[in-house]
Structures are given as structure tokens and as C-alpha cells.
């Protein structure tokens, strides 16, 4: 079968020790037997390793942060589209998703396809709405409360058993064993990330993750569960292994059916020793470990591209259990002339 030639733009080329999903996504696309991709890297910063990885990225353009405003952001995307005739964009970073979701119509007017969750899906799974999300869709979510003052903290003793997790609005989480510790972490987190601080019931167990892809009509096209084997001091997986867990897959399919989830997602779930599953976070995008799913037999980046183009796909029905990934770092050699070209022209 002849491979289809497509121009695909990918963000998240920050393949550092806290990697973005861009490079793993590209590896998936490169190994596709249906697509022959020309990969256009979209980089925010001029040292994102992906920019310099020849053979993976055909051409890179710098783009402004979405913070600058969607009009200017889209202006740059249009410029790139004029040169590269993009078929699909795969945004991979949390901070840009809102802008891409909002711009979906405009992009499709330019002939650029995306496959993203709806704004409603995106908002209702957010950290501070997750508890309500769980109640709505019948999924166990650890009980949690947003705390905005010391007064609120005093009342916690009536609602929680210690220990509790104290979480920042965007990042960071600490385990607190008593009220004094909660106050300490509250001060620390609120000064760093602002209010509210989220206090969450602590669920003891093993963290498991699922990467999945919904077709927007309730069907689960792909789902691969994984357990992290080794975690860096930044809390990122350094190694992981695909696991066989029918319950996890059932939870995933259930969630996608009920929410009619559109696009990729990563579920972070705690499995207790008693066999209970608690959802702790939903990332509304492809995770950085997606290449493990590709290797296990479910090429999620390829499927996402085909869905974006409006193709009907049959769900993957199996994956290899016991496939592992081990992350490593590698020093590429670059030259100031490459840096000059990127810095002065905004492309390489």
C-alpha cells in the first residue's frame, strides 16, 4: 500500500530530562506504514533539542508563546502554513491547548486539521473541577477541597483523615500528617502558585497510567496501560512497563464513552491494595511516554492524525504486555551557526 504524504506540525520538542511529547509523537509517525510524514517542528524556545534532531524533524519554525494573544499567534501559524501547507497540527503542551482548541475553526478554515477535546471537556476535567467530574461520570476521585484561608484549614479536621495531600494550583504536592504541616505547605504552595490550595484525601496504592484516544463519539480507539518503574526527582517516569489490567481498560472505555472524549488523553490512576481505582488527574493530550504504546502495537500518533483527517478507524484491540521503556539522555552536537540561523530567521 502506498503511504500517504502529509505535512504534520508538532509542538513540544523540548526533549529534555522533563520531556515534552513532541519527539515520541514524531517517532510514532515516522514508523507508520500508512503515513509518509514531512515533520514541521514548532518550537517556543531556541534550545529545544528536537530542533536539532535531524532525521526526525524536517524543518523547524519558532512560534511565539500563546501568552502573546491568539491573533498574533495565529498570524505566525498562517505564515508557516503558507510555506508548508500543513495538513495536521498536533499540539502537545498544556499551556497551548486552550489557544488551539479556541482556534479550531479558524485553523480548519486554513485547511489545517486538529483532533482536540472540546472546550467543555477540557475545562471540566481540570484539577479544581476533577471531584465534580468524578461525581458526574461515576468515577472514584479522592475527596478534595479547595482551601483559600486559614479558617478553611481549621475545618479540615472534620472532613479528612490524616494524612492528606496538599497540592498547588498548577504543580507540586506534599503529604501532610497533621494540621500544622498543612498550614506549612499551604503557606509554601500559596506563595508559589497562588490560591486556591487543594487538599486531597490521600489514597495509598500504586500509580498506574493509561494513554488513550477517543474518537469523539464515545468509541475508544486506543488504550494502553503502563506502570512507572522508576521515577526521577522531578516525578517523571524514567522507566515504565505495559501491564495487563482489564479494570483499567474498562474504566478508560467507560470514561470515553460517557464523556465522548475527542482526542488523546492520559489518565493518572491510583490502584489501592484493596483493588479500588481512584482517578487523580486527566491530562488532555498525548503523554511523553506514548512511544511505549507505539512499540506495544498501538500507534496512537498515527491514529490521531487519521482521525483528524476525518477517517473512520477500527479500534486497536490488543497490545503487547511487558514492553518496557527506559529513558536516556544523549548529548547531540550543534554549532553556533545553527543557533544563529534559528535566532535570526526564526526557522532552521
Amino acid at each position: 500500500m502506498e503511504k500517504e504524504q502529509l505535512n504534520i506540525a508538532v509542538t513540544g520538542l523540548n526533549n529534555t530530562d522533563n520531556p515534552g511529547p513532541g519527539i515520541p509523537v514524531i517517532r510514532g509517525l515516522r514508523e507508520s506504514d500508512k503515513i509518509d510524514p514531512r515533520i514541521i517542528g514548532l518550537a517556543y524556545e531556541n534550545l529545544e533539542p528536537g530542533i536539532y534532531m535531524k532525521g526526525l524533524v524536517d524543518k523547524t519554525y519558532q512560534i511565539p508563546y500563546p501568552k502573546i494573544g491568539s491573533d498574533i499567534f495565529l498570524e505566525r501559524i498562517k505564515y508557516i502554513n503558507d510555506k508548508e501547507k500543513l495538513d495536521v497540527i498536533i499540539p502537545n503542551l498544556d499551556a497551548e491547548l486552550y489557544t488551539f482548541i479556541k482556534a479550531e475553526k479558524e485553523l480548519s478554515g486554513l485547511g489545517i486539521h486538529t483532533f482536540l477535546p472540546t472546550l467543555e471537556q477540557f475545562e471540566e476535567r481540570s484539577k479544581s473541577n476533577l471531584y465534580e467530574f468524578g461525581q458526574k461520570y461515576g468515577i472514584k476521585v479522592p475527596f478534595s477541597k479547595s482551601v483559600t484561608s486559614f479558617l478553611d484549614i481549621k475545618n479540615l479536621v472534620h472532613e479528612f483523615d490524616f494524612p492528606v495531600l496538599v497540592k498547588g494550583k498548577f504543580y507540586d504536592a506534599y503529604l501532610a500528617y497533621n494540621l500544622e504541616q498543612v498550614i506549612g505547605y499551604y503557606n509554601k504552595l500559596s506563595s508559589k502558585w497562588g490560591l486556591p490550595v487543594i487538599v486531597q484525601e490521600f489514597i495509598r496504592g500504586t500509580e498506574v497510567n493509561v494513554v488513550a484516544l477517543g474518537d469523539g463519539e464515545g468509541e475508544t480507539i486506543a488504550a494502553v496501560p503502563m506502570r512507572k518503574q522508576y521515577i526521577t526527582d522531578k516525578g517523571k517516569a524514567w522507566g515504565g512497563i505495559t501491564i495487563q489490567d482489564e479494570n483499567l481498560l474498562k474504566i478508560t472505555r467507560d470514561l470515553i464513552r460517557k464523556t465522548k472524549w475527542r482526542g488523546a488523553m492520559e489518565l493518572e490512576i491510583i490502584k489501592t491494595s484493596g483493588g479500588q481505582y481512584y482517578l487523580i488527574e486527566i491530562n488532555p493530550r498525548i503523554p511523553a511516554w506514548v512511544y511505549l504504546a507505539v512499540a506495544a502495537g498501538q500507534n496512537i500518533p498515527e491514529a490521531l492524525v487519521l482521525l483528524a483527517l476525518g477517517r473512520k478507524l477500527k479500534p486497536f484491540n490488543s497490545y503487547e504486555v511487558g514492553k518496557m521503556f527506559i529513558r536516556y539522555s544523549y548529548d547531540m552536537i550543534g554549532d553556533i551557526s545553527q543557533f544563529e540561523q534559528l535566532s535570526m530567521n526564526g526557522e532552521l
Partner: peptide, 14 residues
């Protein structure tokens, strides 16, 4: 000064 990791010209508006 071009700061590594911080876009200058192309991080800015046209």
C-alpha cells in the same frame, strides 16, 4: 542579548 530558551525576534509580534 539572545537568551537561550527565550525567543527574541520570533517570539515577538510581527
Amino acid at each position: 542579548k539572545i537568551k537561550a530558551g527565550v525567543p527574541d525576534k520570533y517570539g515577538m509580534q510581527p
